[in-house]
Simulated scan of single mutants.
Amino acid sequence: MGCFGFLKVMMFLFNGIIFLAGGAILGVGVWVKVDSGSLLGVLEEIEDAPAELDQLLNVGYLLIAVGGVLLLMGFLGCCGAMKESRCMLLMFFVIVLLVFIAEVAGAIVVLVFQPLAEDLIKKVGDKAVEVIKRDYGTNSDITGLWNATMDGLDCCGFYDYTDFTHSPFNNITTAYPTECCKLGPCTLQNAMRTNATGCFPKLVELIEDNSVILGAVALGIAALEIAAMAVSMSMYRHIGSKRG
């Protein structure tokens, strides 16, 4: 197998993985939009939510768009390599280049508007606590969602156990969710003694602990994109020289 044949095989395998990943992301996006019992479905029902939360609710459409782009990119890469189509390879190069530029622009926007993101998180947190105090213990969707979240992240409330004070659950039982206490009945005293970490601080801690991994993954994706562009252009020129 010559160098060009090796590049064809690698392009096919690499873009085959992209195609499958795109299909999976597209499926998740569709599921998020049609499943009213999902987290986003519950958020959509929150009254008087911050205006910025509307952008979060569009994540289903974002996943559908990303999945569609990856499907198209994988298709063009696979078929362009196997059929030695210069048109498909050029389209593949353009799409990867646009994705790369969008990622760089997105990273810049995140860095520049980080204070706004922190303000949004505070607004969402305040609204989440309001929902807990109003609905936890009476609304089955809200109660089930928070129980699953607290059990999965091993946390208590958005900030801490005080989020549940004067909630319907607390008013009826004078207790707190079991996730807020390590031992014994989850009374106010046991909750204060346990002082379990809130889900938001827990999530921030999880992201910070894995920031190096996330950075390495981002750099790896950028390197793969640059390599994909280089290989596609190399094949584009090689096919052109053969036909010339």
Rank of each mutant, 00 (worst) to 15 (best):
V99I: 14
L20H: 02
L219D: 08
F19Y: 10
L89R: 07
L90T: 04
K123T: 13
R243I: 07
T149C: 02
A216M: 15
G74I: 01
Q114A: 10
D54P: 07
L90F: 04
I95S: 04
F93S: 14
E179M: 13
V99F: 11
V69Y: 03
S211K: 13
A227Q: 03
A148V: 00
N139Y: 11
K242S: 12
V94W: 07
G125C: 13
G67Y: 08
P168T: 05
E45F: 09
V30F: 07
F93M: 06
G27I: 08
C180P: 12
E179A: 14
V131A: 00
L188E: 15
A105M: 14
I132N: 03
N195G: 12
A191G: 12
D163I: 00
R193P: 01
G80W: 01
D151K: 10
A223L: 13
M73F: 03
N210S: 10
C186F: 06
L111I: 08
Y136P: 02
T187H: 12
G157F: 09
I46P: 08
F14Y: 11
G106L: 12
E179T: 15
L56A: 14
G244H: 12
T178M: 06
R237K: 14
V59Q: 00
K242V: 12
C87N: 03
A51C: 06
V69D: 06
L203Q: 01
F4R: 10
